[in-house]
Design a protein around this nucleic acid. Structure first.
Length: 478
RNA sequence: CGGGACAUAGUACAGCUUGGUAGUACGCUUGCUUCGGGAGCAAGAGGUCGCGAGUUCGAAUCUCGCUGUUCCGACCA
């Protein structure tokens, strides 16, 4: 383990991976549980997840999705029906084989995802075209027996939401896939201050059992991509395998078109790796569990705490998430460092010196800027300041993303671009074989998603020479 | 799943080579003084040295096995 002072973290540019782990631990987002590959989500980390949930739940419900909760286990016999799906997930399933001290005749698979259980549910409740569309979502955790785990990025168990919908027509289903991908994109733009590239996945990268997968892909500070959300058009494959049917407008049995979409606690990892710096976490204001922290200085002096409480109440009334730290066993300096580690967007320092002039000190986490402002200014302008910070963070991340994108035409250029970090756009035939070769040549570069389809007359694929059919974003990914 | 590193108090580490009383710093508790960038003094609490075998009169230290964490690959949200 790297040599660290007790409360210091590894420099971001010196060792990004270690920096990431340090931030997760020192900002008290998580710690390691005693179960291999499983983490404890600590209050501060979980609170970030709750902010994401709050935003998404509102958006989902506005689209007509309803929250449900289904069993966490799937009988093995039921699992086996959709062939591609099984092949994709079977290797990473955790299976319970004993119950009540007896060996189970039909072992229970801990859900790695719930397409099957939703299909089973829909089979039973769908009768008529009048029941459609059906849009169910569930917030839950899933288990995948990962070989390598990292906090929030890849865990044996992670928290997510999975929406599962049924539609009469392919068109409606495909529209739903787009709608929810856009909601995820909005969540990045409006809440996480993270810009994405988004698009369809290549055949090689798509979800096991899907007709088409779409994803949003973020760019981390170290130049690697992170798949941050997916939306799948499942076609009728699951419906057929699991016997979902309804009586259509024509009085004939029809098979519905299915979709599923999800984001996970991986988004927390994205926030850390997009915005964090050498002082720790930097949280975008709208996902920060605490947006403003008030630190009193010499709080026993008359008037200091009163002024703090007054400010706090004024901010609370405006719906701002504010914390007043009255713990006088910690010095202001300690608190400054602590709240910077935790990435709280704004800090207000309230001490007798400034207060005598009717002022307080306002400090921005993002750029460290300190300014002396009046109490009235605080009471009136914090929402605007938070918004400015959000915009600045989004723009900074967007500049990083856009600056990284390079258009390349052959494998040599692709290799160089990927070695530089960030995304490279290149036309190719879109076949899995070529993608695998590209991965080999570039030492791990994969097609993240498709930028554009080429209708006709594509240049020869740089790998196999067949006509190119797509232009894809390539990058190394987490 | 392969390759490397690591495992000693809540945290970060020393001690191991050459076996013989469990250490340091920070944190924690109590009290006082402090408070505008990780405070000072004083007195305390806190450990079956990851687990299991073996060698030995005696193991944190030597040997073997296991487990976990971490980094780099392969595989996947």
């Amino acid at each position: 383990m790297a040599q660290l002072k007790n409360n210091a973290i590894t420099s971001r540019d010196e060792d990004f991976a270690q920096w990431y782990t340090d931030v997760c631990k020192k900002a008290e987002l998580m710690n390691y549980s005693s179960v291999k590959g499983f983490i404890n989500y600590l209050p501060y980390g979980y609170a970030i997840w709750e902010e994401i949930q709050n935003y998404l739940n509102k958006r989902f419900k506005a689209e007509g999705a309803e929250n449900v909760y289904l069993p966490m286990v799937i009988p093995e016999s039921m699992f086996a029906k959709e062939k591609e799906h099984v092949e994709g997930f079977a290797p990473e399933c955790l299976v319970a084989t004993y119950g009540g001290g007896k060996k189970l005749e039909d072992p229970l698979i801990i859900r790695p995802t719930s397409e099957i259980l939703f299909s089973d549910l829909y089979k039973n409740i769908l009768n008529s075209h009048r029941d459609l569309p059906k849009m169910f979502n569930q917030w839950c955790s899933v288990v995948r027996w990962e070989k390598t785990t990292r906090p929030f990025l890849r865990g044996s168990e992670f928290l997510w939401q999975e929406g599962h919908c049924l539609f009469e027509t392919e068109e409606q289903a495909r529209h739903n896939v787009e709608t929810f991908l856009d909601i995820y994109d909005d969540c990045g733009r409006n809440v996480l201050a993270i810009p994405f590239v988004k698009g369809r996945k290549t055949e090689h990268e798509k979800f096991a059992g899907a007709v088409a997968t779409y994803s949003i892909e973020a760019l981390m500070h170290d130049g690697k991509a992170l798949q941050s959300g997916t939306s799948h058009y499942l076609g009728t494959g699951f419906a057929k395998a699991y016997g979902i049917q309804y009586l259509g407008r024509n009085n004939k049995l029809e098979v519905p078109h299915q979709t599923s979409w999800g984001v996970s606690t991986r988004l927390i990892g994205a926030v850390i790796m997009v915005h964090g710096d050498d002082n720790g976490l930097v949280l975008p204001p709208y996902v920060a569990p605490t947006q403003v922290v008030i630190v009193p200085i010499r709080q026993k002096e008359p008037g200091v705490l009163e002024a703090c409480e007054d400010l706090k109440n004024a901010l609370l009334e405006q719906g701002i998430r504010v914390k007043l730290d009255k713990d006088d066993s910690k010095t202001p300096g300690w608190k400054f460092a602590e709240y910077e580690m935790k990435g709280i967007p704004l800090r207000i320092e309230v001490g007798p010196r400034d207060l005598a002039n009717g002022q307080v000190t306002l400090v921005e986490r993002l750029n460290g800027e300190k300014s002396l402002v009046t109490l009235d200014y605080i009471k009136e302008n914090i929402p605007a300041v938070l918004k400015d910070i959000h915009v600045a963070m989004y723009n900074k991340a967007k500049e990083h993303l856009e600056h990284s994108i390079k258009d390349v035409e052959n494998v040599e250029e692709l290799n160089a671009a990927i070695a530089d970090g960030g995304y490279a756009r290149m036309a190719f035939c879109g076949e899995a074989e070529c993608e695998l070769k590209i991965k080999e040549i570039t030492g791990g570069g994969t097609a993240r998603c498709i930028y554009k389809d080429i209708e006709e007359g594509g240049k020869p694929c740089p790998v196999c020479g067949k006509p190119s059919t797509i232009i894809a974003y390539f990058a190394k990914a987490y």
